[in-house]
Amino acid sequence: MSDYEVRPATLRDAKAIAEVHAAAARAAYEGILPEDELRALAPATREAKWREAIEFSEPQVQVAVLDGEVVGFVGFDRSRDAKTPSTTGEIWAIYVLPEHWDKGVGVALWDAARDGLEEEGCTVVTVWVPLRNDRAMRFHELAGFKREMKTAKTTAIGSVKIEEIRLKRNV
């Protein structure tokens, strides 16, 4: 039994989501991105994006809360990849404050996203993960995702290009 409550995000959560996103991204990309790019991962650059996502449910956003504090979030919806069937969902983002890593928060968020995607009629779910983000890769593989080897792509984060690969599993 988890002490974390997972619920749909509200507009009041946008600032906390941006803070989680920035803190978790800085920790996750340490050693992958240079120090100046890590410092640029600031909550102020993300709050408006998450406010809009919550307002328009694109993607749907769920938060994990412990003692009234947002400690993680997941954004999910239909796949943004071209030529995927309408039954393909995608985890657009999943982030947890580093001090809550390895405590079941990610699993609780993944379970909520899977339930939401299932309600939307999705039968398959994908997620893009940086190849060098070993923690995220391990999390998704433990959750049953398999690498789609021919999907590798290069994405820019600030001035740095990183290699990502799509992982996929049945909902």
Rank of each mutant, 00 (worst) to 15 (best):
M1T: 09
M1E: 10
M1W: 09
S2E: 08
D3S: 12
Y4P: 04
Y4S: 05
E5P: 03
R7L: 07
A9C: 07
A14V: 08
K15W: 12
K15P: 01
A16P: 09
I17F: 03
I17D: 03
A18C: 05
E19L: 06
H21F: 12
H21D: 11
A22Q: 06
A25M: 14
R26Y: 09
A28G: 10
Y29W: 12
Y29P: 02
I32K: 05
I32V: 10
D36S: 11
D36I: 10
E37G: 04
E37I: 08
R39V: 14
L41D: 05
P43K: 13
A44R: 15
E47V: 11
A48V: 14
W50M: 05
E52L: 13
E52F: 09
I54G: 02
E55P: 01
E55C: 07
F56N: 15
E58N: 08
Q60H: 08
Q60K: 07
V61E: 00
V61N: 02
V61M: 04
V63Y: 01
A64H: 09
V65C: 05
V65G: 07
G68W: 05
E69N: 11
E69F: 03
G72D: 02
G72F: 03
G75E: 01
G75R: 03
G75S: 07
G75V: 06
F76S: 04
D77L: 08
R78F: 12
R78C: 08
D81R: 11
A82C: 09
K83D: 12
P85H: 14
P85K: 15
S86R: 13
T87R: 14
G89T: 05
I91F: 04
I91V: 14
A93R: 01
I94M: 12
Y95Q: 03
V96W: 04
V96I: 14
L97Y: 00
L97H: 04
L97G: 02
L97A: 00
P98L: 08
P98M: 05
P98D: 01
E99V: 10
H100W: 12
H100V: 09
W101D: 09
W101N: 04
D102Y: 11
D102P: 07
K103I: 04
G104K: 02
G104E: 01
G104Y: 07
V105P: 00
G106N: 01
L109H: 05
L109V: 01
W110T: 01
W110R: 00
A112D: 00
A112Y: 00
A112R: 00
A113Y: 02
R114Y: 01
L117F: 04
L117H: 03
E118Q: 11
E119T: 06
E119M: 08
E120H: 03
G121R: 06
C122I: 08
C122L: 11
V124R: 12
V125H: 06
L131T: 07
R132Y: 02
N133W: 03
N133H: 10
N133C: 09
A136H: 05
A136N: 04
M137N: 01
H140P: 00
A143F: 09
G144A: 09
R147M: 12
R147V: 15
E148V: 13
E148Y: 00
M149I: 14
K150I: 12
A152Q: 13
A152C: 06
T154S: 10
I157W: 00
S159I: 04
I162A: 03
R166P: 03
N170S: 15
V171D: 01
V171M: 09
